[in-house]
């Protein structure tokens, strides 16, 4: 699935955060959106992932405008996964139950957890596992319906270097999924296929890794 954004503008109150952004996300690649705090990268990520409606402009998934999608929840559940900076696992549910929260089919959860190295933690609660394991569970929750896109907002913000690298190694291993990651973690940039640099609400430059 292809993702395209045209003339995206967004205001919070009277403050303009994004100033007419046009971009296209390459499928099955890792795209990093980088920039200083306040550059608009998180807002752009939220708009691309359908969590936030832009004030102006349009987002197209395979040339279908987001505005024309009747049931955006159902669309998001099927096609989009989201990983937050804080894992936001529900405390009273086990890791497996957290991952199953939006799952269409619960049969592949065990395999997914095994692949992410947390298979043995299925029945543990989030307060019983490490930060890295929590974030892996959050990633599993985003991947459970095999979505076309996974959007991640500072997914390594609360992790040490080892765990942070582990997260991006994981992203790399899912070849069919398009990952869009908002980050200012410079170590991570090495793992990205495309880097979109934001500054003051505009795309400053887009660079692609040479293969």
């Amino acid at each position: 699935m292809r993702l395209k954004a045209t003339n995206i503008e967004h205001f919070y109150g009277h403050e303009k955060i994004l100033h007419g952004i046009d971009l296209e996300i390459e499928p099955s690649k890792i795209t990093a959106i980088i920039g200083e705090s306040g550059s608009g990268k998180t807002t752009l990520l939220a708009i691309l992932s359908s969590l936030l409606k832009p004030t102006n402009g349009d987002v197209y998934y395979d040339d279908i405008s987001e505005n024309s999608i009747k049931d955006i929840n159902a669309f998001r559940r099927k096609n989009i996964g989201f990983v937050f900076q804080f894992h936001y696992l529900i405390e009273y549910l086990t890791l497996k139950e957290n991952i199953a929260l939006g799952a269409f089919d619960e049969h592949n959860i065990n395999t997914l957890m095994e692949n992410l190295g947390i298979g043995h933690l299925a029945n543990r609660y989030s307060n019983e596992v490490s930060g890295g394991e929590r974030q892996r569970a959050a990633i599993a929750r985003a991947l459970v319906n095999k979505p076309s896109f996974v959007f991640a907002d500072e997914p390594t913000g609360n992790l040490d270097t080892k765990n942070a690298v582990g997260v991006f190694e994981l992203f790399k291993s899912f070849n069919d999924t398009t990952f869009v990651v908002a980050t200012h973690d410079k170590k991570i940039i090495d793992y990205a296929d495309v880097i979109i640099e934001m500054e003051d609400g505009v795309v400053k430059c887009i660079s692609k890794k040479r293969v």
């Binding site: 998001r76 989009i80 936001y88």
Partner: peptide, 12 residues
Amino acid sequence: VEFGVMRSVGLS
């Protein structure tokens, strides 16, 4: 947070 997560994973 819990309900926000539910919305983000696409629950109706």
